[in-house]
């Protein structure tokens, strides 16, 4: 590269091992990775497009320092092997003033094949790698991410992408051959009509005119049928696009349903929380009893002792009263009330003395209050209060429950906010409007189909008429005419074979791409349940699960599978391609997580004979080399050293430094 982008003066990159294997070019953002890819594309096609497909102005490609030194010259030289032959491209531009037009005027291109300069180099390069298929060989991580969006972008972008894919697969070769043969057949027919006129004779002239008229009518019909088919194709693409949009809206409907579910869950949780709060308030109302509990406990104990003491005294007094009665009776009857022994004077005196003592004892016991229900009642009241005392575990349990409900409600609210933000700006009427539009377009498509069929029938009738006429003309014994008729019939036969080959080859290639994409996908997929890929007519992709469920894009895009699926398709296109070229990937793993990134890295060596990875240290980390198992043949690093010197290229040392 000479003065290209951040590369001041001459810089050379050499891919080792004859270019075969994996080649790493490391550099952070803004160090000059993308400029290397752009330099190659500029060398090939003389222009570079940015990520939005806009052409980058030549004045933006010149190195700053060169510009400051008034050197208005930049260029690229590429050495490569094509079909086993060494080739070299040298593209330069030099301007007298720093002006886009001047650079375009000052551009020169040389192509050497096997050491010899080749005429018409632009056309030769386009044959080697058509510009519209280069997007599958020189791409960046953004393209992987946007692949499906490209399909949905609009009908034009979709048609362009579809054409590019079919071109990679080689379908247009059959189309070109068919069209070439059609052109040749027309030439033969014109020649035949011309000769017939020359042969003279009014009958012959009349036949020739009639034949020419029929041919003109057939040409017009072909044109009309082509236009109608084109209209129908545009309409069918629009229908397919609208149906995909409608499928995406299924997601919106699911979100709306989820929103209702969340709101209901929040309501249920709020109810449960309120119930627990009421329970807690009731408990707190009884909390004063906890404060009184120690005092009540002491009082109960005291009441129990006093009650027991009173009961003991009462029992003693009752026994003393009984004893006094017995003594009184014994004294009165002079006979012992317990054993019936007759008592003498001495014994009677002893009994009287004992009676006096007993009376004194009874008097003493009477001074203590007799047992009453007051003690019992007080004790019961306090015991009941003690039963109401809260345990700290009960309160903690309720607080824990309330916290759980709070957490659940907060979580649901957060999800609700998320769902609401996704639903913002969604036009609720759009699905029904789209359905109506699809129905209207399908009706129109049906009408066009009918019209095409009618025109084809008309063409069939004309063809019958013409072949009848051809037979008449064929009967005219003219050698040259006979020869031309044979050539026309022969050309027609060949044309029909190519016509049938177009759809057969397209279907077979699509099946091969689908099969290869699935093989790649299985090596780098994130979930084992994702079984295989299916490619639709527009080259959009669906994942089929092991249970044979078809997952549309809206159902798997959230799982980060999008880049993996696009990479599988691009890998398959490269494997099935009619064009052999190296693959340059600019920051391809930027959005992949570690596991995905490792799987893709392990797969890469199988993807193409030559792969150049332009990576940042964030996506290709220290130790990642192990996944490429000795396939790395070149390892370079880039560094932007400042505006004056620009970017430099140097071999990477151990540890990725």
């Amino acid at each position: 590269m000479l003065n290209f982008g951040p590369y001041y003066r001459n810089h050379e990159i050499s891919f080792q091992n004859d270019g075969l294997g994996i080649h790493l070019i490391r550099g952070g953002n803004g160090q000059g990775k993308t400029s290397i890819q752009r330099a190659i594309l500029w060398g090939l096609y003389g222009e570079v497009k940015d990520r939005r497909g806009e052409t980058i102005r030549p004045t933006s490609l010149l190195n700053h320092t060169a510009f400051n030194e008034d050197i208005y010259q930049f260029g690229v030289q590429i050495d490569f092997i094509h079909d086993g032959v060494n080739c070299r491209i040298i593209r330069r531009t030099q301007a007298i003033r720093h002006h886009d037009k001047k650079y375009e005027e000052g551009m020169t291109l040389e192509l050497y094949v096997d050491g010899r300069i080749v005429p018409e180099p632009e056309r030769q390069i386009q044959r080697m790698l058509p510009p519209d298929v280069s997007r599958f060989y020189f791409f960046d991580g953004e393209m992987l991410r946007d692949y499906e969006e490209l399909l949905e972008d609009d009908s034009r972008a979709m048609a362009l992408l579809k054409d590019s894919i079919e071109r990679v697969l080689g379908v247009p070769y059959f189309k070109m051959a068919r069209n070439d043969l059609e052109g040749i057949k027309r030439k033969f027919e014109r020649e035949r009509a011309r000769i017939m006129r020359q042969l003279g004779g009014s009958d012959l002239e009349e036949l020739a005119e009639l034949q020419q008229m029929l041919q003109d009518e057939l040409d017009d019909l072909d044109k009309t049928i082509n236009e109608l088919e084109k209209q129908k194709e545009i309409l069918d693409n629009k229908i397919a696009e609208d149906k995909r949009k409608l499928a995406d809206m299924k997601e919106v409907r699911e979100l709306a349903t989820r929103r209702l579910e969340i709101e209901k869950d929040i309501e249920i949780n709020e109810g449960k929380k309120d119930k627990k709060i009421a329970e807690r308030n009731t408990m707190i109302e009884k909390l004063y009893k906890n404060v009184l509990a120690p005092i009540a406990s002491t009082l109960i104990e005291k009441f129990e002792i006093q009650s027991q003491q009173a009961l003991d005294m009462y029992n003693q007094k009752q026994r003393a009263l009984e004893h006094a009665d017995k003594l009184k009776k014994g004294i009165k009857e002079s006979k012992c009330s317990y054993c019936g022994t007759v008592l003498d004077e001495k014994k009677l005196k002893e009994l009287e003395a004992e009676l006096e003592e007993t009376k004194i004892r009874i008097e003493e016991l009477t001074q203590i209050p007799e047992p009453n229900l007051e003690y019992e009642h007080s004790k019961n009241t306090l015991t009941k209060m003690m039963d109401d005392v809260l345990s700290s575990e009960d309160l903690e349990e309720i607080d824990k429950k309330i916290n759980e409900y709070d957490y659940e409600i907060a979580k649901l609210n957060s999800e609700l906010e998320n769902v609401k933000s996704k639903l913002e700006g969604v036009d609720a009427d759009e699905p029904s409007r789209l359905e109506l539009q699809i129905r209207t377009n399908e009706k129109e498509s049906g009408r066009l189909s009918g019209k095409i069929e009618a025109k084809k029938e008309e063409k069939l009738k004309l063809l019958e008429e013409k072949s009848e006429l051809d037979r008449k003309i064929d009967a005219i014994p003219q050698d040259q005419l006979k020869k031309l008729n044979k050539r026309i019939i022969f050309t027609d036969s060949i044309m029909r074979i190519f016509e049938r080959a177009i759809s057969t080859f397209r279907e077979e290639q699509k099946a091969a791409v689908e099969k290869t994409a699935t093989e790649i996908f299985r090596e780098i997929r994130s979930k084992e349940e994702f079984d295989r890929l299916k490619i639709n007519d527009q080259y959009g992709l669906s994942i089929i699960t092991v249970h044979n469920t078809i997952l549309d894009r809206s159902e798997w895009r959230s799982s980060g599978e999008e880049q993996i699926v696009a990479l599988s398709l691009i890998g398959a296109l490269n494997k099935c391609a009619q064009v052999k070229a190296p693959i340059f990937m600019d920051t391809p793993f930027g959005r992949l997580d570690v596991t995905h990134g490792e799987r893709v890295l392990k797969y890469l060596p199988k993807m193409s004979d030559q792969i150049v990875l332009l990576v940042t240290d964030r996506e290709f980390r220290e130790g990642d080399e192990i996944h490429l198992a000795g396939k790395i043949k070149t390892d370079l690093s880039l560094k932007y050293t400042g505006e004056k010197e620009g970017s430099i290229i140097y071999p990477t040392t151990a540890g990725g430094e």
Binding site: Y173, M176, A177, N179, D180, L181, G183, I184, K187, K483, K486, R487, F490, T491, I494, I497, F498
Partner: peptide, 22 residues
């Protein structure tokens, strides 16, 4: 014979067909 190619290729195909027929 099955020729297998933005055309004026047509001349070359025509030559082949002419050689085959006539």
């Amino acid at each position: 014979l099955l020729i297998l190619v933005d055309r004026g290729c047509q001349e070359q195909i025509m030559t082949i067909i002419n050689q085959r027929v006539g």
